[in-house]
Amino acid sequence: MKTKMLSDRGIALLFILPTILILVFIVVYPLIWSLFLSFTDYSVVGTEKPHFIGIKNFANILKDEYIWLHFQNTAKYVIMAIAIQFFLGLGIALLLNREFAGRGILLTLVLSPMMLSPIVVGLFWRYILDANWGVLNYFTSLIGLPKIAWLGEKEMAMYALVIVDTWMWTPFMILISLAGLSAVPKELYEAAEVDRASTWFKFRHITLPLIAPLLLVGLLFRTMDAFRMFDLAWGLTQGGPGTATSTISIALYRMAFQNFETGKACAFAYIILILIIGMSNIYIRFLNRLQKRGG
């Protein structure tokens, strides 16, 4: 067999090269191509060849108030969703961090929403949130609240998106928080007990400092994910009503595949990309540090 002859170096190359090549082919090469297109007026449905128009696409996007609106929507959604999921996730984890009958199966059930297809989740929640025959309005009417047009009113649609996102992604924060909590040495609590420390004192001075790094990882993961989210919002509201829940991913989709402004969409994609690179740099540096510490 030929592989017998291979040195460690040869095997390393043989094992890694296919991965790198396929990533370059599907990710790097198209990105270079779209960088070129971002300086042109190209449209995939047009018959014209791309014309070089300098930085006009970038300038137009950065000047466009309409696009600015999508950034505001995204920020609103990211901040609300992440904050709620963080505290809710930690709270539920503290609650579930004890032994009780059927814990394993119940935990798996609670955690399962995050594994589901976001588009299908978004679509089905349309039915749950429907103003007239939605089951959520039925529940709220039981406690005397008026019917809410969750997906029909601008203000409410954003809350609806946050609610569904919270249902789907709080499990992620629960999972992370539980992992942190289970790693806290029991002896520390026992020692604090001897000193008659209050529950709050134990949480504030023992639990929190020990689980903080993990919680931060969870927050970073969620922020990155929420920032680029498309499926869930598309399934639930398609960005509507109007542009009330239109995030940057939805704006990019409409620009590229409904208006077919390909050149401009490439420029927009690059602006998003730069933001993502900035964010992921912070995140990657953090993961790196954590891994070094963990060995």
Binding site: P30, F227, F230, I284
Partner: peptide, 19 residues
């Protein structure tokens, strides 16, 4: 390798579509 996963699908899909 990790950073290829951080990219929003919507950003990648425009050039991939053309390709």
């Amino acid at each position: 390798i990790l950073s290829t996963r951080m990219l929003p699908a919507m950003v990648i899909v425009v050039p991939v579509f053309i390709m």
